[in-house]
Amino acid sequence: MPLPTRNSQGLYPETPSQTAGPFVHIGLALDVAGLTPREQEIGSNIASAEAEAEGEGEGEGEGEPIEIVGTVIDGNGDTVDDILVEAWQADAHGVYQTDYRADRAFRGFGRTAPGANDAGVWSLHTIKPGRVAHPNGQPMAPHINLMLFARGINIHLHTRLYFDDEHEANMACPLFDAVPPSRRDTLIAHREQDGAKPRYRFVIRLQGPRETVFFDF
């Protein structure tokens, strides 16, 4: 297969996206498809509290353990139960740990998808990220970068999850300069108090009223 023709800027065109389709789970979330996981999988545990408690990973899992629970809603108001969500976040110090090793307490990257009995709710177990510097020198508010893949989504959607108990940091986050003020609250997850560890609920609306902000970068 020859490389495609270079474009007017002399670059090869990027391989075009296609939808991940309805059976994305057999490739990227084996447990949800009913398949036996391989020895190592990229799962929904981004940080393992157990490893942290046992002092493994030299503190890489340190930070406040949290759970994220989310739903994705389509333009008809129906829950998207075949969504696959990928998450990328900094550690508790605001540093991206790029070297992914499954056996580390903090991995920075994870994947989640609702199971058959989850009514479209997906979850992530992680630690609350620290603040990452914007290139202009200001700190951004703590956030998790999310990517959405599903049937009907022809090119994945990028968004960010912010935390409602970081109001002051959120208001000062330079990222929000790019987001129309009326839409900023679509990026905020809401803390719930029940359960052993803090839980944040995040609703993503793909289309229509209160549509979530999606980014191009």
Binding site: V80, A90, V132, V179, F215
Partner: peptide, 23 residues
Amino acid sequence: ARSPQQALVSLQTPTASELTGPD
């Protein structure tokens, strides 16, 4: 029903959040 109606918001200045990824 699964495509946004609003324009994507362009990040004029990508940050470490966008410019890094798992290795």
